[in-house]
Design a protein around this nucleic acid. Structure first.
Lengths: 147, 147
DNA sequence: TTTAAATCCGAGTAATTTAATATGATTTTC
DNA sequence: GAAAATCATATTAAATTACTCGGATTTAAA
């Protein structure tokens, strides 16, 4: 079980925007250079994020993207939901046709438990949390360096 | 984020063996018929499960597979680990090369949290739990039917 | 002792999804 | 007007997943 690059690249890119929040917009080009990700590919991801209302684009020269909301109001769940679609551990959860089988209920319950667990974690973490974690880690690193 | 058929079929098949635990072995053919899964494909999955020590094969006519351990000692984690490999939400967790970037620590921590959450759930659920859930659900259904 | 039912093993292929690329249009700042 | 950016859509490449196939071996039962 693994996230696709859509989700991974997307979260990283959104994290960059969170670090930049309140300042000038970030262009796709600069994000793709920092992270060594294909520019064209990132463009597709931002198209989805924009349509979902998570980022706002500023067109033209010196343009780019900014978060549509403060980092504290955007969760990892929001981002992954847009880029990876809802987490469906098994299609069995909603597909009734194949599910009139003997094992239906038992495995269905399992898939739901796994899904809920992931959703709970991703809904509980905001971009602000990630920025705070990042800053406090940097602080520790700097203190160590000073010793 | 979704489990592949390896994990889904595998858990369902292991659940069948758990229901059957203590009785005669179950053949791949009978499992594949009950669940409408390709016989050849299931065979591959059982090859992995056997090599991992989760099931024991009985060759020859009237043969099949049985669980190597009681259902209470086999977790969903054990099964998924064999069939899907360890859960790595992002390769970033162990791959150092790409991770000397600015966002390294922040997203890495996130992937670890998601992974741990899934592992915690799957390690906490045994085949016995699933059988018990299944039986109690059946009981409720039967009571309702009687009313 | 033969037959049938089963596992075992490895190779090969089809289908699907993911990832990336490309092109051209539009917008906006300088 | 030139340059820098988003926007939109189509196409291709790569990788993974799902499945199929053929034949060898083992063993219970007729």
């Amino acid at each position: 079980m693994k996230l696709s690059t859509r989700g991974r690249y997307g979260v990283k890119a959104m994290f960059e925007l969170a670090l930049q929040y309140g300042q000038e917009p970030l262009s796709i080009k600069s994000i793709s250079e920092r992270q060594n990700i294909s520019e064209y590919y990132l463009e597709q991801l931002f198209s989805s994020l924009r349509k979902a209302g998570l980022v706002t684009s500023i067109r033209g020269a010196q343009g780019g993207y900014v978060l549509s909301k403060p980092p504290s109001e955007i969760t990892v769940y929001d981002i992954l939901d847009v880029l990876e679609g809802p987490i469906e551990i098994s299609e069995c959860i909603e597909d009734d046709e194949n599910c009139s089988r003997i094992e239906y209920c038992a495995t269905r319950l399992l898939w739901i438990k796994i899904r809920d667990s992931v959703n709970q974690v991703t809904k509980s973490i905001t971009l602000e949390d990630m920025v705070n974690d990042y800053k406090s880690m940097n602080l520790i690193t700097n203190i160590k360096r000073g010793e």
